[in-house]
Nucleic acid binder design. Structure first.
Lengths: 212, 212
DNA sequence: AACGTTCCCACATCAAAATGTGGTTTTCTG
DNA sequence: CAGAAAACCACATTTTGATGTGGGAACGTT
């Protein structure tokens, strides 16, 4: 029989209490505590007897320290705890911030409690649940970005761009490609024009961002 | 009433037929066709009367052209179709390849048919469903990479690095931060040392790659 | 054959960056 | 308070980078 130690951080009393009441009814879930802010959570965590925790439901839009900021601090105390972010649809653009900060699940507050409970079990077992709209955004993040223009560089130009990205100086590029320094300059000049940039830095940024 | 036009690409006849039989029973799902390879799918798509399709269940491990390779070709014919990848657990490392190739959902074959059907509706409505173990892998992908060294830059140094990445010149940085040009040089000099690089290009690369 | 593209090279100029040495002032912390 | 760390500034030198102009050779297309 599982025994999941759950904590809740949610400022809206109505939501907090309804979630708490619902989760409490399940025999495998044990609510360790619920608080209304990250600050309150951290205080509990700092207390002498640091309560053991498996899963945390964390609201993303909190007064004071936001959930995202809080994630960072919370994970210092509980590096192995699984954190489920609760969010309203307006905050969907914070998905990636939250994921980067270490959230492992991201659920809309509109999700039925039964699904949220399911998610708790899922993350406890090493999985992750994402609301469908969230998951879609994540999937899109991986898709090839819409290449705007036909800014196709020639084969040679690509070699030079690559060398630039690798941090080679003009001289080194000339050497590597067995062409003269002036030729390298010539290529780069034209590359800048077709890419509509005017510094090495911008070229590198474009490449690293996948715009090329 | 929804009317989802579904196609299935799956080489294993047992799985294919069981999925087909199950989906067929739902009044909102209409199976346009099922085939056993990407090649067969593309042939159907090339036919004079190109069938309309909403959702595709695509096996990832196919003989001949794999699902991942197929994704590319299929999406040329049906750029707006939602594609759900079916996968066995051994292929979990192909998640990101598939997502990059344009899949919008990724489901283990061990998933109960009822869940798979749910996923079909989810993607049809603009969402996405990921199997828990897959979703977890994706979440982990976003988490802070293991920072190797203590290359911690000071607050000020980070500002300067950021400015460099933004493409500002030393002069502009000096102006922006209200310090002298020489001071900017000084900071950058030290940054290069602690980062063990010796050009702006390398700094930018490090930042963009998340090494910092 | 004429044209466009790509690749190649040279010369020139000014701005920017890389790097070193030397010193001062805050600010934080043991 | 003393010492370390960070931030600040100056001066000097060498290398790179950005940009322009001008021209030549190879290759494929019309």
């Amino acid at each position: 029989m599982e025994n999941i130690k759950l904590a809740i951080v949610e400022d809206d009393a109505v939501i907090r209490e309804s979630v708490e009441a619902y989760m409490e009814t399940h025999p495998s879930i044990q609510i360790t505590f619920t608080v209304d802010s990250v600050e309150a959570f951290l205080e509990k965590a700092r207390a002498a007897i640091q309560p053991q925790l498996d899963v945390l439901l964390l609201d993303i839009g909190l007064p004071g320290m936001t959930g995202i900021q809080g994630l960072y601090h919370i994970r210092q105390q509980y590096p192995n705890m699984d954190i489920i972010m609760l969010t309203t649809f307006e905050e969907d653009d914070k998905i990636f911030d939250a994921l980067c900060a270490g959230a492992c699940s991201y659920i809309s507050k509109r999700t039925p409690l039964t699904k949220i409970r399911e998610a708790i079990f899922t993350v406890y077992r090493g999985g992750s649940y994402m609301s469908p709209s969230i998951a879609r955004k994540i999937a899109q993040r991986f898709m090839p970005k819409a290449k705007k223009k036909e800014n196709a560089l020639s084969e040679r130009q690509m070699q030079i761009v690559q060398a630039l990205v690798d941090g080679l100086s003009y001289k080194m590029i000339a050497n590597k490609l067995n062409i003269s320094l002036d030729t390298v300059r010539d290529h780069i000049k034209r590359i800048y024009r077709t890419l509509e940039v005017n510094s090495k830095a911008e070229v590198i940024k474009k490449v690293l961002k996948g715009d090329i």
